[in-house]
């Protein structure tokens, strides 16, 4: 009897260990969690719409700005001169139009006295139309010149914080070339890179617990979207747009990582978040 009891105790322990080991395996391998998470935010790059020297820099690095705040000014002289030229052109075109109109009206009266040919009158009418078109063209050019002058004042497109400001007063900036970025306020979210084998366990609106590398109370959020595509590093197209497929002979294949975006709940306390921070994400099953 004692012998059977000895065997029973050991066998029981082995059976319990099998179930416990299976639970640990499932907990690690088949539950929706990842240590490969990153804090992210909406980044808006700021580029001047006109080229020129920076005459006035109103911001410092990491400074908070509100939408519409003046960030920096580009030298206005060239754009001011262009506007004056456009205004003069507009005035010139206006007077030319008035003159052409006056001539046309006078010639219309002459036609009734048979003092002018119909062809001359038609020519005069067309000249008036050309003068009007020239005036419209001059007005649009003036509008563009005014717009360029206004765009020398570069304003914040969104509220947020300035990032990576290397711009200095006196630098030359070029049209369309970004000079720094703004991290939009309240736009922080988390992206978790989940193994493709775990994607069936991820659902929209699933609750998420996010632990930062820096520790502290975990943040909470909800799954907002699951990435629909990632790049295939195994295939490229050649010059004839035919797929060049690399031959693979690996016995071990790594599962791909699919990005899953998680929005943070508003209930989270005001903790300092920086885009790029590392996070561990657990989703409820």
């Amino acid at each position: 009897m004692t012998k059977y009891l000895r065997i029973l105790v050991t066998v029981l322990m082995v059976v319990v260990a099998v179930f416990a080991g299976r639970w640990v395996w499932n907990d690690y391998m088949h539950s929706p969690w990842t240590r490969d998470g990153r804090i992210r935010a909406d980044i808006v790059t700021v580029a001047p719409d006109v080229s020129g020297w920076v005459t006035n820099l109103n911001i410092t690095n990491d400074q908070a700005v509100k939408e519409g705040d003046l960030l920096f000014s580009v030298d206005q002289q060239r754009y001011q001169a262009a506007l004056s030229q456009s205004k003069a052109n507009t005035e010139n075109a206006l007077y030319s139009w008035q003159l052409a109109k006056h001539k046309y009206e006078r010639r219309t009266a002459l036609l009734s006295q048979k003092a002018i040919s119909a062809e001359d009158l038609e020519s005069s009418r067309i000249s008036t139309e050309i003068a009007k078109a020239n005036y419209d063209l001059a007005v649009s050019q003036q509008t563009t010149a005014q717009l360029n002058l206004n765009r020398t004042q570069v304003r914040a497109p969104v509220s947020g914080h300035i990032i990576n400001l290397n711009l200095r007063q006196g630098n030359y900036v070029s049209q369309g070339v970004a000079v720094f970025s703004i991290v939009r306020s309240g736009s922080f979210y988390v992206t978790g890179y989940f193994e493709e084998a775990k994607i069936p366990l991820v659902h929209l609106n699933q609750q998420a617990k996010i632990t930062l590398l820096s520790g502290g109370k975990p943040l909470t959020g909800h799954v907002a979207s699951i990435g629909k595509a990632i790049a295939n590093t195994n295939t490229q197209s050649n010059s004839q747009l035919l797929p060049q497929v690399q031959q693979t002979f690996n016995w071990v294949r790594l599962s791909q990582r699919i990005p899953v975006d998680i929005t943070l709940d508003p209930s989270n306390d005001e903790r300092h978040l920086s885009a790029g921070m590392t996070a561990t994400i657990h989703l409820t099953q």
């Binding site: 012998k3 000895r6 050991t10 082995v14 260990a17 416990a20």
Partner: peptide
């Protein structure tokens, strides 16, 4: 002496403790 196959018992015990710790 009351345990049959002490090595089996101890390995199983370790796994159980691991699961409990996790």
């Amino acid at each position: 002496d009351r345990i049959w196959r002490v090595a089996w018992f101890e390995v199983s015990l370790f796994v159980c403790y691991l699961a409990l710790t996790v």
